[in-house]
Amino acid sequence: MSSNNISPVNPLPPVVVALFLMIVGIEAVFSLGARGILGGADAVGWRLEAVQRYAFSAEIFDWMRSNGRWPAEHVIRFLSYAFIHVSFMQAVFAGVMVLALGKMVGEVFSQFAVLAVFVLSAVIGALAYGLLVDSRVPLIGAFPGAYGLIGAFTYLLWLRLGQLGEQQARAFSLIGFLMGIQLVFGLLFGSQPDWIADIGGFVTGFAMSVFVSPGGWRRMRDRMRHR
C-alpha cells in the first residue's frame, strides 16, 4: 500500500461515533419538536416526558431500595438518563466531550472497553448520586459517562508519565481544572449536586482502566505478585 494513501488523522472509533450520534440525535428530535418542526403540537412536551420516564431519580431509587423492588422501567434510568439533556447546547457540549475523549481513549482501548467505560461510569455516577444526594432534582446528561472517559484518559497519561520518569500527579491536571471550573460556576450561579455523579464517573473510568486497558490485568497481577 502506498504511503500516500495513509491518512494522517486516525479515524474515530465507530462506538464513539455511535454514542455521539445518539446524544446529538435524541437532542435534535427534542429541539425540532419544541419548535413545531417535528411531531406536531404534542412534540413540545417530548423533553419533559422523557425526563419523567427516563431521568435518574434519587427518590425513585430510594423507593426501590426501601421496597426491595427493581422494575425494569426504573432500573433502566441508571443509563437512560445519560441521553437526555436540558438544552441543545448542553447536549452538544457533552457530545463533543465524548467524541474528543473517546477518540483519545479509543486509540489505545478496544471499542468494547471504551463502551464499557462510558456505560459503567454513567451507571456508577447515578448510583453515587442516588446514595449521596438528597435532592428531588433528577439527574440527566452524558457528563458522568464523559467523565469516565476522562478517568480513562487520565490513567493512560498517568502510565505514560510513569514510563518517562516524570511526576505522575500531573495526569490529574485535567480533572482538577474541570472541577475548578465547576466550583467557580457554582459560586457564581449556584451549584447543583450532579457534580457528585461526575466524580463517580471519573473514579469509575480510572479504576476500570486498570483492568480493561491493553495489558492492564497483567500489570495488576504482576504488581500483586511482587507484593
Rank of each mutant, 00 (worst) to 15 (best):
A128W: 11
L159K: 12
P71K: 11
E166R: 15
L178E: 04
R77W: 12
R136T: 02
A72G: 11
L156W: 12
W158C: 10
S110T: 14
L159M: 09
G180F: 15
I175K: 00
S80W: 07
E73Q: 13
L188V: 15
I76R: 15
N67R: 15
F93C: 13
A72P: 03
Q182S: 13
R160F: 12
Q192D: 10
A116V: 10
L120D: 06
E107R: 14
F109N: 04
A146P: 07
V98D: 08
G125L: 04
L174K: 01
Q167W: 08
H85I: 08
M104H: 11
A94P: 04
V114I: 12
L161S: 02
A100P: 03
R160Y: 14
F153A: 14
L183D: 07
F143H: 11
Q192L: 12
L99G: 08
V108Y: 06
Q90A: 13
I181K: 13
L120E: 07
T154N: 06
G141A: 12
L101P: 04
L149C: 05
A116F: 12
V123D: 02
A113H: 03
Q168V: 05
S135D: 03
A171P: 02
R136P: 01
L174T: 03
G148M: 09
I150W: 14
V86F: 09
D194M: 11
G145D: 09
P144K: 04
S110F: 10
S191A: 14
R136Y: 01
M97G: 15
F83Q: 09
L183W: 15
I76S: 15
Q111H: 11
V119G: 03
R69Q: 15
F93W: 14
L157P: 00
G125D: 03
A82E: 06
R170I: 07
P138D: 06
Y155G: 02
G130A: 10
W70N: 07
A100S: 14
V108G: 00
L115D: 05
W70E: 04
V184Q: 09
F83S: 11
G190F: 03
L139P: 01
F93D: 10
A152V: 13
Y147I: 00
L131A: 06
D134A: 08
V137G: 00
G125K: 01
Q168S: 02
I175F: 08
E73D: 13
F78P: 01
S80I: 10
G106F: 05
I84P: 04
P193I: 00
V123G: 01
G102F: 09
I181Y: 08
K103V: 09
A169F: 08
T154Y: 05
G176M: 08
L132K: 05
L99D: 08
M104A: 13
K103E: 00
G141T: 12
F93S: 15
I76D: 12
V108K: 13
Q192A: 12
P144G: 05
V98E: 09
F172Y: 03
L187H: 07
V119K: 02
G176K: 06
V184D: 10
L188R: 13
F189C: 01
L120W: 11
I84Q: 08
H85T: 09
S191E: 05
E73K: 12
N67T: 15
E107C: 09
G130H: 03
G141N: 06
S87R: 12
F83P: 03
A171S: 01
F189N: 05
Q163K: 14
A142V: 11
A128K: 01
L164H: 08
H85C: 10
L174R: 00
G162E: 04
P144V: 04
